[in-house]
């Protein structure tokens, strides 16, 4: 299955990936090859097969509505690239 330049650019935008122009052709080929490989599944007759919702045949796993202690505040923020007064600090997110 062939994937277009536009589709690659859209997927890149949605995934927040920057693909330089000179890499576009290479990416296009790699993704198309993967899709073609998976396409083999279309040979199967799935007329009476229900779509699978989960890989493991397991259902209805719950927990009771009980509060357990949360992470220590400092530990919770220890992976934050930037911190400000107990908040996770992130770059401005609105787009012009």
């Amino acid at each position: 299955m062939k994937i277009s330049h536009e589709e690659i650019q859209k997927i890149a935008l949605l995934s927040r990936l920057h693909i330089p122009d000179e890499k576009l052709a290479e990416t296009e080929k790699a993704l198309s090859d993967i899709l073609t490989y998976v396409e083999q599944l279309e040979e199967l007759d799935l007329t009476d097969v229900q779509p699978m919702a989960h890989a493991v045949p397991l259902y209805n796993v719950y927990r009771e509505d009980k509060v357990v202690p949360s992470l220590d505040h400092e530990l919770a923020l220890s992976n934050a690239p930037e911190e400000d007064n107990g908040y996770f600090k992130v770059p401005r997110v609105v787009q012009e």
Binding site: Y62, D65, A76, G86, Y87
Partner: peptide, 22 residues
């Protein structure tokens, strides 16, 4: 206080497993 009601699951840390509240 900000970020005091958080844990690996709601912070989306790798390796955690969410379980539905009944």
């Amino acid at each position: 206080d900000q970020n005091t009601h958080v844990c690996p699951v709601c912070l989306g840390l790798p390796g955690c497993l969410p379980v539905l509240n009944k």
